[in-house]
Amino acid sequence: MRAVQLVEWGEPPELRDVPVPEPGPGQVLVKVGGAGACHSDLHIMDAPGPPPAFTTPLPFTLGHENAGWVERAGPGVTGFAPGDAVIVYGPWGCGLCADCREGRENYCRTSGGQGGGLGGGYDGGMAEYLLVPSSRFLIPLGTLDPRQAAPLSDAGLTSYHAVRRSLHLLGPGSTAVVIGAGGLGQMAVQLLRALSSATTIVAVDTDAGKLDTARRMGADETLLSGDQAVTRIRDMTGQHGAELVLDMVGLDPTLRMAAQVARVLGHLTVVGLGGGALPVDFASPPHECAVAAPYWGSIPELMDVVTLAQQQKVRLLVEHFPLERAPEAYQLLRTGKIQGRAVITPHG
Results as ranks from 00 to 15, higher is better:
N106W: 02
P91R: 02
A85P: 07
E102N: 06
G93M: 03
G121H: 00
C108H: 06
V86N: 08
I87F: 15
E102G: 08
C97N: 04
G95M: 12
Y129A: 15
A98R: 07
A127V: 10
G103S: 03
Y129F: 15
C108V: 06
Y107W: 13
G120L: 00
G95K: 07
I87H: 08
A81K: 05
P82K: 06
Y122E: 00
G93S: 04
G93T: 01
F137L: 15
G90E: 07
E128M: 13
G124Q: 05
G113W: 04
E128L: 14
G125K: 03
E102C: 05
F80K: 05
L96H: 10
R109Q: 12
G117S: 10
G124H: 03
G113L: 04
D84T: 08
L118K: 01
G95L: 13
R136Y: 08
Q114R: 03
N106L: 09
V88T: 10
N106A: 07
S135K: 06
E128F: 05
Y107F: 15
G116Y: 01
F137K: 05
L96A: 15
Y122I: 00
F137S: 03
W92A: 08
E105S: 07
A81W: 01
C97H: 08
A127P: 04
Y89D: 02
G121A: 02
G125V: 09
G116C: 07
E105L: 12
